[in-house]
Amino acid sequence: MRPILLQGHTRSLTQIKYNREGDLLFTVSKDKVCNAWYSHNGERLGTYNGHVGSVWTVDVNSASTLLVTGSADNTCKLWEVQTGKCLKTWEFKTAVKRVAFSEDDSMVLCVTEERMGFAGTITVLPVNPDVNAEQSSKPVMELVNQKGQSKAVVADWSYLDKYIISGHEDGSLCQWDWKNNKKLNTVKAHDGLISDLQMSPDRSYCITSSKDKVAKIFDIETLEEKKCFVTDTPLNSATLTPKFQEFVIVGGGQEAMDVTTTSARAGKFESRFYHKILEEEVGRVRGHFGPINTLAVHPDGKSYSSGGEDGYIRVHHFDPEYFTFKMEI
């Protein structure tokens, strides 16, 4: 099937997220807005206006009632999904690079940038599910990056919100007993910045992508490396297919400023599919004119979306062959 092109953003995409049912797709961009789309036809449902800087990150709660965004304007905003109303603005000293709702939807984590003498943090904020209620400004916990440590750039919650898992600029992956502000475990996951970290549906393992051109799967409990997917281009995103196939999809591409010839860039802006267990590449999907910044799979496993540096979002519905594909074993 031909991909659906979602046109509405005027600058590069930074993150895309499906809601739990997968009928909605939320996209954020450097153009300062968040858009909501119907994922089956690409019709735009609405726009969340209010940020005054690039929006780096977005997440939606499991009831699809609340949306949270983090921006370069040093704020994190909570929105009512249905009306587009901004319910709360949390202010920080620096940009918010990543947000994520906890498994039970009662909190969001915000990864804040380290800059101008301000330490990077992973701040946990309480969220009241009632859209009419007052939202608290007081963090539940603040994990402050210690001097000399590499800052966190991505993070997410484990199953039961037992741990927060953070990915860092130097490629390390940390496991936090966040309730007690204690780092439990650190592993050197990658040789470069961890660009994305996504949880498995049951939040018991995660996939990371890195500028070191590799994506990996880690056990959340032990941080043991379970799988490794080697590519030839710096990766910006990695995601897991929840059903039908045991695949991972990775995407990235050399930034234009980092290459000297156009030929070196050819063919690097494709979504690559790997067999999750066998670690072998099984296919590629092209389309973007620039690096792929973000990837997400529909929770029903029948389609996926990619957001690019080119400002486009492409929604791909898998062909029948996808569902019947089998590796020889």
Binding site: E21, Y159, P299
Partner: peptide, 14 residues
Amino acid sequence: ERADLGKEIVKNAD
């Protein structure tokens, strides 16, 4: 662990 905490997973959306 979920059962011990009385927090069984809500069925996946679809």
